[in-house]
């Protein structure tokens, strides 16, 4: 019973990722692509959690947090590049 629910959730998350992938390919602006990639990362966290339940292990729970941190840092770096043209500045008040 639980397996069927998990399979249905996986299919729904995969469809959502495919929709976001459409936005990454088609998106008119760069910001649309960045937001879609961030949301794909969050979908990946949910897929990892569901795979943890399906495989009956807790070995992947750290990976969820790692994906969250990487998605956040990557999105911040992209937004800073879009806003100011450089990612790491030497002196920010110049």
């Amino acid at each position: 019973m639980l397996d069927i629910f998990m399979l249905i959730s996986l299919i729904i998350l995969s469809l959502a990722s495919i929709g976001l992938l459409y936005r990454v390919v088609k998106g008119p602006g760069v910001t649309d692509r960045v937001m879609a990639l961030d949301a794909i990362g969050i979908n990946l966290m949910a897929i990892t959690a569901i795979m943890c339940i399906m495989m009956n292990t807790d070995a992947f729970l750290d990976i969820i947090l790692v994906i969250g941190i990487l998605a956040f840092v990557g999105t911040v770096a992209f937004s800073k590049f879009l806003e100011r043209g450089e990612v790491i500045e030497r002196d920010r008040n110049r």
Partner: peptide, 25 residues
């Protein structure tokens, strides 16, 4: 459990990278 020096070091430098992004060098 899963983990170790490599992924720990990468995550530490990820935290320092976030500081570099919010502030400057």
């Amino acid at each position: 459990t899963p983990g170790g020096g490599f992924i720990g070091g990468l995550m530490t430098s990820g935290g320092l990278l976030l500081l570099l992004l919010a502030y400057d060098l």
